[in-house]
Write a protein that binds this DNA or RNA. Structure first.
Lengths: 317, 317
DNA sequence: AACTGCTCTGCTCGTATGAGCACGGCGGTG
DNA sequence: CACCGCCGTGCTCATACGAGCAGAGCAGTT
C-alpha cells in the first residue's frame, strides 16, 4: 500500500486539535500531555486551521460568507456584497438571499430618501422580509414598467407599496406596460405627466434596488404578453443572457436589440450604471450568467446573492 | 409566512461568530463594532457553540471522536474506546478503523508480553497498518482455530506473523481447523501437545485482540467449509447475530448451539470475558448487531470502531 | 410598598494565548 | 574547515480571554 503523505507534524496537529477543540484542554495541558512545548501546540493549532484540518463553520440561515464577500468587493470594486449560504432547495435559498437583502437594506447608510425599485419574484421576497420600520419616510419609486397597477399581492405595485409602507413612506408607481408594441406609443406614454414625473424621480433616486431576469420562455415578460416565446428565442440567438429593467443584454452588458430597447419603458442602463448606490439581488443557478454580466458590466455597486452564485462569479475569467 | 423562532440574541450571536471566526476580530473589537460589551460578545460566542450555530469539526482520516469515546467508556464501563469518523466507502472506513486500532495497540500500556489474536479481514487490515517496531518482543498467539497454516498473505497465519514480526517477537500458530465435524476429533486435537500448548499460552495472554463475524452466508466459516449455508441459516433462525472466536451467539451473548460450540477449537468466551485487556475491533453497518452484543455482554474491555457503529451502540436501549 | 428570587449586565482579576525575538542545529558553499 | 543562511525551537512580554462576583432591573408574592 502506498504510503499516504501524512506528515508526523500533521498527525500531531490532529491530536492537538482534538484535545483543544473537543476536550477543551488548554494548550499548556496539551503540551504536557504530548511532551511538547505549549508554543508548539499553538503553532500546530494555527497550522491545523490554515491546512483545513480544523474547519469552523457557522450554520445558520442568517449566516453570511464574509470571506467571499470580501473577495467579491475587491475583485469587482463593489461598495458592498452580501453572500449567504445556499440552502437545500432553491426556494429556501431565495428566502435566505431575500432576507440578506432586507437586512442589508435596513442597515444601508446613508438611509436613502428616495429608493427606486424594479420588480420580480426575488424583490417580492425581499419586500416580504423587510420589517416594519426598516427605515422612516422613504419614497419608493418604480423604475421600469410592468404589470398593471392593481394586481395580486406580490405584483410589482404591491411590492413597491409594501416597501414604502413598512418605512412609513410614499410610493410612486409607474403606470405603464414594460414594453410597447410601437415606438410611437412608448414615446407618447413617456410624455404623459405622471409617467414622466415618476421616471424623473427614479432618475434622481438616492439608491436603486433591482434584480435581473433570465432569457427564457418562463420570463414574466412572456407571461404578461410583452414578448412572445419567439421573441425570447430570437433574443437568445442574438446572445442575450437575460434582462435588467426589461432591457435584454448580452454577456458583455450590451443591449442586444436596440429597436426593442427603444420600446421598453424605464430607466436606461446607463442611468443605472451611474448610480452611486445600486443594489443587485440575485439567487439561483439559472441566473448565474446574467449575474456575471450585471456585476462585470458595472451595473451595480452592491450585490446580494447566494454562495454558489458568488463562487461562480469568482471563478477566474 | 410564519415567523420562525429566531431570537434577537441568536442573530447577534451569528453576527458575532462571523466576525470572530471568519474575520479574526477580537471580542473587544466586535463589542465596539456592535455596541455591546466584550463580555456579552464572549457569552454570545459560548451560546453559539453550545447551540450548534458554530460547528468546529476536525477533518482528517486519523481524527477521532473523543466525545463519543467518552460516552462509550462511561456507558459500558470500558477501559478505553477509539472512534474514528466514517469515510465515503465501507472499505475506507475499515481502513480508518484499522489504522485507529493499530495506533491504539502501539500506544497500549503496559505493553503486553503476550498478545492473543483472532483473525479476519478486519484484523488483517490492522496488522498491515502496524508500523515496524510498534512494540518490542511481543509474543503473538492465535486464540482460535482457522484457515490452514500456510495460506495466502492476509490469511490467519500471516496476520499473526506480521504482527509479531513488526514487534520483533515470536508467533505461536494454532494448527487446527476452526470447527470440527465430530466432537471426538476436536477433543483429540485439543490433546495434541502443540495445540494444547498454544491454547494454554493464549489463555495466559496479557492482552487479546479480536473481531467478530456476522451470521450470514458470506462468512469465512462457510467459505472455508467449516459450516454450510444451511448451518448458518439454522443458527440465524435460532437467534444468532454473529460469531466471536468462531462461537455463534445470540443478542444476549449466549452460545446458540452448545453442541456446535463444543466442536469449535479456541478460547472459551468466558476466558475472553475474564481478560484484563481485550480489544474488540469492528467496522461497518453489517456488524452493528454483533458489535452491540460484544459490548453489552462484556466480552471486551476496549473497543475500536467507526462513528456510525458507535452511535448505534449509544442509542438508548 | 417591601420583599424575594431570578435574570442579565458589566466589572475585577488571574490565566491562556499570540506576536515577535534570540538561539542553536543543519546543510550547503567557498 | 569556517562561514552563512535557513528553519525550527523555546523564550519574553503584551494582550485577549474566561471565571466568578456584585449590582441593576423586573416580575410575582405578601
Amino acid at each position: 500500500m502506498a504510503r499516504s503523505g501524512i506528515d508526523d507534524d500533521e498527525l500531531l496537529a490532529v491530536r492537538v486539535a482534538e484535545l483543544y477543540y473537543d476536550e477543551d484542554k488548554t494548550q499548556d495541558e496539551i503540551g504536557g500531555l504530548l511532551g511538547i512545548s505549549r508554543w508548539k501546540v499553538g503553532r500546530l493549532l494555527q497550522q491545523a486551521r490554515t491546512d483545513g484540518i480544523v474547519r469552523i463553520e457557522i450554520v445558520h440561515p442568517r449566516a453570511r460568507k464574509l470571506g467571499i464577500e470580501r473577495e467579491l468587493r475587491s475583485r469587482f470594486g463593489l461598495a458592498d456584497a452580501v453572500v449567504v449560504p445556499n440552502a437545500g432547495t432553491d426556494a429556501e435559498t431565495l428566502g435566505r438571499v431575500a432576507q440578506g437583502a432586507a437586512d442589508h437594506l435596513t442597515a444601508l447608510r446613508p438611509v436613502p430618501k428616495t429608493l427606486a425599485v424594479s420588480w420580480g419574484r426575488t424583490l417580492t421576497a425581499v419586500a416580504e422580509r423587510l420589517p416594519d420600520g426598516w427605515a422612516r419616510g422613504v419614497t419608493v419609486v418604480q423604475m421600469n414598467g410592468g404589470v398593471s397597477v392593481n394586481r395580486r399581492p406580490g405584483g410589482a405595485a404591491s411590492l413597491a407599496a409594501t416597501i414604502a409602507q413598512r418605512a412609513s413612506g410614499q410610493v410612486a408607481l409607474l403606470p405603464s406596460p414594460a414594453i410597447l408594441e410601437r415606438l410611437e406609443t412608448k414615446q407618447a406614454i413617456e410624455r404623459d405627466r405622471t409617467v414622466a414625473g415618476v421616471l424623473a424621480q427614479a432618475s434622481a433616486a438616492d439608491a436603486y434596488l433591482f434584480t435581473a431576469g433570465v432569457c427564457d420562455a418562463g420570463s414574466a415578460h412572456v407571461e404578461n404578453g410583452y414578448l412572445s416565446v419567439r421573441d425570447i428565442d430570437l433574443l437568445a440567438r442574438r446572445g442575450a443572457v437575460g434582462d435588467v429593467l426589461g432591457r435584454y443584454i448580452d454577456a458583455d452588458g450590451n443591449v442586444v436589440d436596440p429597436e426593442l430597447d427603444a420600446r421598453t419603458v424605464g430607466l436606461s442602463l446607463d442611468r443605472l450604471r451611474a448610480a452611486r448606490t445600486s443594489v443587485f439581488v440575485t439567487a439561483g443557478e439559472a441566473k448565474h450568467d446574467i449575474a456575471r454580466t450585471v456585476v462585470t458590466a458595472n451595473l451595480c455597486t452592491m450585490v446580494v446573492t447566494d454562495e454558489a452564485t458568488a463562487r461562480t462569479l469568482l471563478e477566474e475569467e
